[in-house]
Computed example of a mutant assay.
Amino acid sequence: MAITLRRRALGATAFAAALPGIGRAQGAWPDRPVRLVVPFGAGGAVDTLSRTVANAFPQHANGQPMVVENRSGAGGTIAGAVVAQSRPDGYTLMMADLGANAIGKMLQPSLGYDPMTAFTPIIHLVNLPLVIVTRPGLEAATLPELIDLAKRRNGEMTYASPGVGHASHLSAELLARRAGIRWTAVHYRSGADVMRSVIAGETDWTFPSVSTSLPFIRENRVKTIAVSTANPVPLLPGVPPVAATYAGFNSATWHGVVGPAGMAPELVNQANAALRAIITTPAIKEQTERVQAAEIVAGTPADFAAFIKAEAEKWEPVIREGNIRAE
C-alpha cells in the first residue's frame, strides 16, 4: 500500500510539473534570473527606465537579478515576437510599448503575432508626456499660430518622427485630424536624430517626449509650443496643453511590463507586486518624475489590460484613415 501511495504521489508531482505555469505559480517567484526584453536600443528613455527597474529588482524578488536585453527594430515588434513565443513561466518579460503591444498588427498586417492576444499584461508603469517643439526660426510661438501656418503652407510643413507608428508620429497625425490640416512626416531612426533635424532646420517641428527634448529646451535650442497631456507638465511651467486649444486631446508615450500569453494568475500577481513596489519606491518615483517627467501609474493587471485595449481603439481610426503602414 505504501508503495502504491508513493507512486501516486510521484505521478501527481510529475503531472503538475508538466503543466505550464502551475508549479511556478504555487512557489516562490523568481528562483533564477528574469530576462526583461526591451524593444529599443541602449541609452534612450525606455532603456533608462528598464535599467532603473532592473537595478532595484533583486530587493523585491528573492535576491534574483533582472537581465535587460535590448532587441530593437521594426517598431518594437522584433522584441514582441521574441516574448510572444517564450514560455509563460515568468522568466521572460517585456517592457511594453504602444507599437509592439497594442497597434503592431494594424501597422504590419503580416506581423506574426497579434498584440491583443499574444501577451499577459502585468503592470502599467508610467506615462511620458510629449511636447511640441519647433525649430528656432519658425514663425509660430503658439499652437494656434502653428496650425495657421500649416494651413497656409497647405501640407508642406514638415515634422520629424522617430518612426512610423511611434506615439510621436500618431500624435502629430491626430492633431492634424483635429485641426483639419495636412503636414508631412519625415521619419528618422532615433529620437536623437529627430532633435538634430529640428535644431538644424531640416524639419519644422516635432512631438518628442519631454525627457528627450528637455535638455534642448533648457538650452533654448528649440521653441516649446504645447504639451500633449490633458494637464500642464510641472517640468515645463507656462507651456499650455494642446487640450487648451483642442478640448479632450490627450496623448503620451507609455510603458509597462507584460509576459507571454498564458501566465498563471498567481504568478502575474507576484510579478505585479514586485514591480509595483519598485516603481513606487520614493527615490525611484522621484527620480523618474524629475528626470523623465513621468506620471507613475502602477495599477493592477486588469487595469493595464483595459488601458492597452483603449489605446488600440483610440489609434485604430488614425491609422486606418491615414493609411499608415510600417511595411
Rank of each mutant, 00 (worst) to 15 (best):
residue 168 S to W: 02
residue 169 H to W: 10
residue 194 V to G: 02
residue 208 P to A: 15
residue 199 I to N: 03
residue 221 R to Q: 09
residue 223 K to A: 05
residue 201 G to V: 13
residue 212 T to S: 07
residue 169 H to R: 00
residue 166 H to G: 11
residue 168 S to D: 12
residue 194 V to E: 07
residue 164 V to G: 04
residue 183 W to A: 04
residue 197 S to V: 03
residue 211 S to F: 00
residue 200 A to I: 09
residue 223 K to C: 02
residue 209 S to C: 12
residue 189 R to G: 15
residue 224 T to Y: 10
residue 180 G to N: 13
residue 203 T to L: 01
residue 227 V to P: 00
residue 219 E to S: 14
residue 197 S to T: 06
residue 172 A to C: 14
residue 207 F to L: 12
residue 211 S to E: 06
residue 213 S to F: 04
residue 227 V to S: 12
residue 217 I to R: 08
residue 220 N to Y: 12
residue 185 A to Y: 02
residue 171 S to E: 03
residue 165 G to W: 05
residue 193 D to S: 06
residue 175 L to M: 11
residue 224 T to V: 15
residue 207 F to G: 09
residue 218 R to F: 01
residue 167 A to G: 13
residue 222 V to Q: 04
residue 207 F to N: 06
residue 228 S to N: 07
residue 222 V to D: 05
residue 173 E to S: 11
residue 184 T to P: 00
residue 184 T to A: 13
residue 208 P to N: 11
residue 217 I to N: 03
residue 167 A to T: 09
residue 201 G to E: 08
residue 174 L to G: 10
residue 188 Y to I: 05
residue 219 E to P: 03
residue 215 P to G: 09
residue 213 S to G: 15
residue 222 V to P: 12
residue 168 S to Y: 05
residue 165 G to R: 02
residue 210 V to T: 05
residue 220 N to C: 12
residue 186 V to N: 10
residue 218 R to L: 04
residue 227 V to T: 14
residue 190 S to K: 12
residue 214 L to R: 12
residue 214 L to K: 13
residue 228 S to G: 14
residue 167 A to W: 03
residue 226 A to N: 06
residue 223 K to D: 07
residue 185 A to N: 11
residue 189 R to F: 11
residue 199 I to Y: 13
residue 198 V to Q: 01
residue 213 S to R: 13
residue 228 S to I: 01
residue 213 S to T: 08
residue 185 A to F: 05
residue 170 L to A: 02
residue 178 R to G: 14
residue 187 H to F: 01
residue 202 E to Y: 02
residue 220 N to F: 11
residue 185 A to W: 05
residue 199 I to P: 00
residue 183 W to L: 06
residue 217 I to S: 11
residue 221 R to K: 14
residue 170 L to Y: 08
residue 187 H to M: 01
residue 177 R to N: 15
residue 178 R to Q: 15
residue 176 A to P: 00
residue 181 I to N: 06
residue 226 A to H: 03
residue 175 L to F: 05
residue 192 A to E: 10
residue 208 P to I: 12
residue 205 W to S: 00
residue 172 A to N: 09
residue 164 V to H: 07
residue 185 A to C: 00
residue 204 D to Y: 08
residue 207 F to Q: 01
residue 213 S to Y: 01
residue 181 I to M: 02
residue 207 F to P: 00
residue 210 V to C: 01
residue 174 L to K: 03
residue 192 A to N: 03
residue 214 L to M: 15
residue 186 V to G: 02
residue 222 V to M: 03
residue 175 L to A: 08
residue 185 A to P: 10
residue 166 H to W: 14
residue 227 V to L: 10
residue 226 A to P: 01
residue 203 T to W: 02
residue 189 R to W: 13
residue 182 R to V: 00
residue 198 V to A: 05
residue 205 W to Y: 15
residue 189 R to Q: 11
residue 177 R to H: 06
residue 190 S to Q: 02
residue 179 A to G: 02
residue 185 A to G: 11
residue 221 R to T: 09
residue 217 I to H: 10
residue 185 A to Q: 06
residue 195 M to G: 01
residue 199 I to F: 01
residue 202 E to N: 07
residue 214 L to N: 04
residue 200 A to Y: 10
residue 197 S to L: 05
residue 190 S to A: 08
residue 188 Y to H: 15
residue 209 S to K: 13
residue 180 G to H: 09
residue 213 S to V: 12
residue 226 A to S: 07
residue 218 R to P: 02
residue 176 A to F: 04
residue 166 H to K: 07
residue 194 V to C: 03
residue 182 R to T: 13
residue 166 H to Q: 11
residue 192 A to M: 11
residue 224 T to L: 07
residue 196 R to V: 09
residue 190 S to D: 08
